[in-house]
């Protein structure tokens, strides 16, 4: 069963508390919405296998509590993550304004600079929208992130968000396969040109 799994990817969900991180994850993994979902303490963890472009990838998804006080616990979970989903609540402007802080934190603790980032504006089912879609789009573009608006409640955009993130990770060389660490690296005697060929025909005169 595990044989056809291409790779295991570590994905992180971050953002202010209450924006719907746990709900998005629950929607993605169990396809349900639970209005009685408890506030996360520390970090939580879920697994799901998905198939993107015919490749199966196992996702280990770490959900974090957004409260300031818990943040001291989470940096460890940034380590080695290949993808991160940064969530804000489109009905709460303050959660959008906090995004910069989250990106800083990501930069500080993330061990790799090629991590794939996705911005999700959640709760678009609600009526009192406070952040325009274009603002989210602009922010994402500025920070080279993927962007989507979603609703954990109505299911809008959720599947798509995860799939696109995974697809992007798989397309990023060196991010997920261990062999690829060496890709594109040329070794010291590259300037020797023909010198090392087995044919023996290449030569300078003497």
């Amino acid at each position: 069963m595990d044989e056809d799994i291409l790779t295991t990817l570590k994905i992180l969900i971050i953002g202010e508390s209450g924006v719907g991180k746990s709900s998005l994850l629950l929607r993605f993994t169990d396809d349900t919405f639970d209005p009685e979902l408890a506030a996360t303490i520390g970090v939580d963890f879920k697994v799901k296998t998905i198939s993107v472009d015919g490749n199966k990838a196992k996702l280990a998804i770490w959900d974090t509590a957004g409260q300031e006080r818990f943040r001291t616990l989470t940096p460890s979970y940034y380590r080695g993550a290949q993808g991160v989903i940064l969530v804000y609540d489109v009905t709460r402007r303050d959660t959008f304004l906090k995004l910069d802080n989250w990106l800083n934190e990501l930069e500080t603790y993330c061990t790799r600079n090629d991590i794939v980032k996705m911005l999700v504006g959640n709760k678009i089912d609600k009526e009192n929208r406070a952040v325009d879609r274009n603002e989210g789009l602009k922010f994402a573009r500025k920070h080279s992130m993927l962007f989507i608006e979603a609703s954990a409640k109505t299911c809008d955009g959720v599947q798509c968000a995860f799939e696109e993130l995974v697809e992007k990770i798989i397309q990023t060389p060196g991010l997920w396969e261990s062999e690829s660490q060496n890709r594109g690296v040329k070794l010291s005697n590259q300037e020797e040109g023909y010198g090392g060929r087995a044919c023996g025909g290449y030569c300078s005169m003497l």
């Binding site: 993994t29 408890a38 996360t40 303490i41 520390g42 970090v43 939580d44 963890f45 879920k46 697994v47 280990a60 770490w62 006080r69 818990f70 616990l73 460890s76 979970y77």
Partner: peptide
Amino acid sequence: QSEVLAKLGTSAEGAHLRARMQSACL
């Protein structure tokens, strides 16, 4: 630590235990 937390699995019980283990600070 994260291995221990991950080992608790994804069941409701596991999630509960995980939260409990991390509640010392709270």
